[in-house]
Design a protein around this nucleic acid. Structure first.
Lengths: 171, 171
DNA sequence: CAAAGTTTTCAAAAAAAAATGAAATTAGCA
DNA sequence: TGCTAATTTCATTTTTTTTTGAAAACTTTG
């Protein structure tokens, strides 16, 4: 699955261009995979990250050699994370995609979309733990209470710290 | 796959015990899975987290209804993360496992073991990107340089910030 | 409003990850 | 040292996730 020629350029540029693209795709495939994102999402973002011009989906498909379905689904994911924006191109009815390269914003969105919902349901589960604690105290009650308290502190710290984290990124 | 009786207690205690255990296992399965850990790892940690006494592997196996292989592999992972410690019990030749419940320490270890190695190889990959930049400048060189610079800042920020993060957890 | 181009959806296939179970290894004890 | 319990390893199976590809659903425009 060799990538198809970039929009501009002669052979030498092309080769160089591709080399950077390949490294970029490699980079983001790994980074995204750390964040639990599928390969295709990393590939798409990696391609767009070093593309000077916004690319339509069919170009993404042909350059990466992935299926339309993957591309569509991957772009949907990236849109949800606000990691790509669509660009209007006059006289072309395809959407043109461009990478959002401000990592601070990307990060903030990731936390909001992917992490925070889990924090909330974690709190619910801790509440349920408290309810399943016996009112009638047994010898272990104190032990259990301490463990539950630790979980509460953990989720509280997470809920406060994670959203603040993006702000700390002083690039 | 019903969990087998806890080491101590009558029927009522048992039931209550199990309820908390179930919630705990549920909680940690999800939390660990957010961090990319397999189900079994979350189950084991969740079980140990609310266990007052350290448990040998065969008890973990029978209570969770997982295989020996899973348990062994899961405990290996947890040991690598220092999320469990082994306990010596006189007159018993099995290892007894106990959960490390100080989340700050757990977190610090996770960052060190699971994240930092990736940051390092990310730097290598960025170096390779710079090498694949054409010396002979083309019209895009400036654009590429800026993109690469952003990646450098990202990895630098990550390498500084993440290890510091654990310290911020003021439980 | 029809036709062509574009994108989404989703059942099926493929790939990747995790769990199993039994053989191999290791470690404690008599 | 030899025996046995405990643990690890790893090829195979199972489960889960991701990708594919083609049909359905939109959308623009002639």
């Amino acid at each position: 699955m060799p990538p198809i020629s970039p929009t501009s350029g002669n052979d030498l540029e092309l080769k160089t261009d591709n080399q950077l693209e390949i490294e970029s795709i490699d980079f983001f495939v790994r980074m995204m995979s750390m964040l639990g994102m599928p390969r295709s999402v990393g590939e798409i973002y990696g391609l767009l990250y070093f593309s000077k011009i916004p690319l339509p989906m069919d170009q993404i498909v042909s350059r990466l050699g992935i299926s339309l379905g993957s591309a569509s689904q991957g772009l949907k994911t990236l849109r949800a994370l606000k990691a790509v924006r669509t660009n209007y191109v006059p006289g072309d009815r395809r959407d043109h995609y461009q990478a959002e390269t401000e990592f601070r914003r990307l990060f903030a969105n990731f936390i909001k979309e992917e992490i925070m919902p889990h924090m909330e349901s974690a709190r619910d589960r801790i509440d349920r733990m408290e309810n399943s604690l016996p009112k009638s105290d047994d010898e272990n009650e104190e032990f259990y209470k301490i463990r539950i308290e630790k979980l509460k502190r953990l989720t509280r710290a997470g809920s406060r710290l994670l959203p603040a984290l993006a702000g700390l990124l002083k690039f």
